[in-house]
Structure formats: structure tokens, C-alpha cells
Simulated scan of single mutants.
Amino acid sequence: MNLPSGRGRGRRAPMADINVTPLVDVMLVLLIIFMVTAPLLTAGVPVNLPDSRAKALDQEKQPIELSIDEQGRLFIDKDEVNEGDLPARLDAIANKAVGADQPPQIYLRADRGQNYGRVANVMGELSRAGLTRIALVTNAGGEAADGGTAGR
């Protein structure tokens, strides 16, 4: 049997090593891209949230975000809702969750400049509809213990 030995005849033996450096470079770039873009995907309606020292909540399902912006406009997720349409929309959300073991989690995001009575009215509508799992969203890690006026 005449096997090529790789010596003297000009043929090279195939290289059996894999160069992983380009793979690592690409993966690190992708990791950085995802780390930068992930926080930008969470907020839908720009709201100036108050500061708080509370811990973040554990999450099992995607919550429903109810937002009140600086002008007092209401948003359910990213859809603007009129004041008169709010009870019907909340009833529809509650009716959709009738078969579930518990009502859906509601994240209430209100601009820090909003009147407390306005936020309380929205919370009353949530309670009336049977949506009682309400979490007030704030900026985590705030230093203010005086009602969230730090940084103004």
C-alpha cells in the first residue's frame, strides 16, 4: 500500500486544530450588544418615576403595565386609553383572567409629578375590576427617604 506521508511530495497533512479566537470575538460582541439593548426594550411610555429603595419583584409571567405620564394620559402597555374607556378595558383584562388561579400582575407606573389623588383613582378602578395584584413601579436604588424628591 502506498500511503502519502506528507513529506517530500509537496502535500500537506490536514490541520486538525480549530481556531476558536474568532468565535470568542463574535460571541463577546453579541453579548455586549444584548447587554446594551436589553434595558432599552423594557420601558414603553416615558414616565419620570419616583425613587425608592425597594427590591425588584420576582417575575413569573409578563405583567400588564398601566402608566400615567406627565400630562395625565393613561396607557395600558403602550396603548393610550381614554379616562372613560378605562373601566371597560380593565374589566376585559379581568374577564380574560377568570380561569386563572390568580389575577394578572399589574405594574402601575405614574409620573412623580402626578397628583396622589389621580393615582389613587386609578388604583380604585383596578380594585373595582378585581385586579388586586398591583405593584407600584419606582426607580430602584434611590437614596430619597423624603418622598422621592432626590435628584430634582
Rank of each mutant, 00 (worst) to 15 (best):
P4T: 08
P4S: 07
P4E: 07
R7P: 00
G8I: 10
R9M: 03
R11L: 14
R12P: 01
R12S: 10
M15C: 09
A16N: 12
I18C: 04
P22T: 04
D25N: 10
M27L: 15
M27V: 15
L28C: 12
L30Q: 01
L31C: 10
I32L: 12
T37E: 01
T37M: 04
T37D: 00
T42R: 15
G44Q: 14
V45W: 05
V45A: 04
V47R: 00
N48W: 04
N48F: 04
N48C: 02
R53F: 07
A56D: 05
A56H: 00
L57P: 13
L57I: 12
K61L: 04
K61D: 05
Q62T: 12
P63L: 00
P63V: 01
Q71G: 05
Q71M: 06
Q71P: 02
Q71E: 10
Q71A: 11
Q71I: 01
R73A: 14
R73N: 15
R73W: 05
I76V: 15
I76Y: 09
I76M: 13
K78D: 05
E80C: 02
E80P: 03
V81C: 05
V81P: 04
N82S: 14
G84F: 13
G84K: 15
D85M: 14
D85W: 05
D85A: 15
A88C: 02
L90W: 02
D91T: 12
D91P: 02
D91I: 07
A92E: 09
K96T: 08
V98L: 13
A100C: 00
A100F: 03
D101M: 10
P104Y: 01
Q105W: 03
Y107T: 01
R109P: 06
R112I: 06
R112H: 01
Q114Y: 04
Q114E: 11
Q114R: 13
N115R: 11
N121I: 14
N121A: 14
N121M: 14
V122E: 05
V122K: 03
V122L: 08
E125D: 11
L126K: 06
L131W: 03
T132S: 14
V137M: 13
V137W: 02
V137Q: 05
A140Y: 05
G141P: 06
G142Q: 10
G142L: 08
A145H: 13
G148V: 07
G148D: 10
T149P: 00
A150Y: 15
G151C: 09
G151A: 10
R152Y: 06
